[in-house]
Design a protein around this nucleic acid. Sequence first.
DNA 1: TCAAGAAATTTGAACGATCAAAGTTCTGCT
DNA 2: AGCAGAACTTTGATCGTTCAAATTTCTTGA
Lengths: 337, 337
Amino acid sequence: MKAPTVEDVARVAGVSRQTVSNVINTPAIVRESTRVRVEDAITQLGYRPHAAARSLRTRRSSTIGIHLDPYVGGISGVVLDRFVHALTERADERGMRILLYAARSAPDEISRMSELLDGGEIDAIVLSGTFHGDPRTAWLAGRDVPFVAFGRPWAGDDETAPHRWVDVDGAAGTRQATAHAQRRAGRQIGFLGWPSGSGTGDDRERGWLESLGDARGPRIVAEDRVTAARTAAADALERHPDLSALVCASDTLAIGAHLAAIDAGHPDLVVYGFDNTPAAEALEISSVEQRPEHVADATLQLLMGDGGSVVTELPPAFERHMLIEPSLVVRGAAASR
Amino acid sequence: MKAPTVEDVARVAGVSRQTVSNVINTPAIVRESTRVRVEDAITQLGYRPHAAARSLRTRRSSTIGIHLDPYVGGISGVVLDRFVHALTERADERGMRILLYAARSAPDEISRMSELLDGGEIDAIVLSGTFHGDPRTAWLAGRDVPFVAFGRPWAGDDETAPHRWVDVDGAAGTRQATAHAQRRAGRQIGFLGWPSGSGTGDDRERGWLESLGDARGPRIVAEDRVTAARTAAADALERHPDLSALVCASDTLAIGAHLAAIDAGHPDLVVYGFDNTPAAEALEISSVEQRPEHVADATLQLLMGDGGSVVTELPPAFERHMLIEPSLVVRGAAASR
DNA sequence: TCAAGAAATTTGAACGATCAAAGTTCTGCT
DNA sequence: AGCAGAACTTTGATCGTTCAAATTTCTTGA
């Protein structure tokens, strides 16, 4: 039993191929009575447009490519995964598909993208994990490929011709955490972050810094590993016995701090993580939630505007980048104070 | 600048369309000298086959669909995500693409699959999260759609006409953990599992049970939440002060047990989780690793055999299901005993 | 009632690849 | 050299859709 084509539908409805096509793509230009007749025929035959045929003719695939980084362990991959989930759902609603591709390095990724774009398999790309001096953005921009980066451009990169991007407002997140700590915890509010120089980390630190000014507690630094954070936090607790809360740049750091606080017999230290990963949830650690669903919405908005297909150049009225306000999830002891 | 087609390549190489096509798809039947000439022309022009055109003619999309469950939080979603990552990499190597789709319920998913299959967008499906009485397997089998389930069929389902599936040998995993505990921990080795009736949980319990026979320690049960596990484990520790190790059905349970052990001033209790999630890693809890990369390999093997494309019926010589042996990752105190 | 213009519909061609079948060149042997 | 058969290459048709242009039908107003 062969799948029905427009031709079959046309025959049943007593119209021509093109009219069937119009009913599907531009129903407004078809007379009401004709449209109903064609729609009935479509339902009756169970007709479904053949994606490849359409794509061949229109030169559009209605598919967005997204790269999956090699899994390296650690906690925060979850944010990207949640983003991909959300993106898939939202894209579906807009009639778009999400195609995954793998690559182990930026040059490797460029050749993969090239392959998929040339083959007409994808119309657009969502970039993640951008880094300082990332060659991918320039490459894409140079080829006029519609794309959105999840992650703002780094200082010095792309200042002149900025591409479209979405990001989470890290400073707003730590500002929320800091404000919460002020109300619930006490006066000594410290920050546990990564070594300076990572844009993301500096952004998150800024929220804490700006909220407290001179009244701030100690600023501690550790690599993004639980043990490193544990050691650093233990040391800080010893030197600042009156520390009441620690705002952290990641859940990994927060877990380290949490464990150190327990070790030090100071379990009422209020700790705030970032990313709201399952690990923080399991340990009942408060954390800043990135709201990947909102990020996904914003991504598609940037890619497609209000229309039904990807757009190479966004109309001037539209914003070309968006900062998503995260939200603080309060857990454990911090919730009940 | 239009993208080159087979026609362009043919002109440059001084051959016909079809010969170019042969060089790409069946190089063996083309004379060496001709092949080289065509390959040079391909490189020179930067020719890339247009996926839609090929797909329209061959009626194959070389794309595998996979569903992403709505994100519900919790720890073990990570396993599926890692599997998707691995599948993408491996599929790429075999010239296959991975297309994501979203659905909120099984019927919803069936209509999504139907749409993608009818539209020729995917050739095959990878099912995950199968459950007792799952309507999806029967539907797919009835439509002769090539598919592989990640997760073995549940007792009572599909016994007569089993479909292709891969799964992780849970019993083997807990057997490894139990054996390790016997060597390193002590004699009282308990099991912390979910309430009976979940096939997965029963399978994991079996490994512990079969390793120890009558010499086994207590069997404890809790829902898959950290707090529930913590309470249950605390209770057990009180009643069995000589408990030396706990093999758990999940990392969530293991974390609960780990926390309970610390609470009870019994931090040398050796705990084993299952799934090797980042959370277990962060807390230095040993865990059984599912090796999603192997699962991905097996999935593609079942879907494609040794060939380059998805196959509706696997040749009789091939296995139709595969059990992957997991591996124990030892961490923390357990490592140094 | 009829012309002019708008609205709705149809027709022919094209998108780029591969299949099937027909045609050509090569190889080995007498 | 000539022939049979194998090896290789070309030609014509086709997959299902949408674009562009041509055609038909409808609407409006004198």
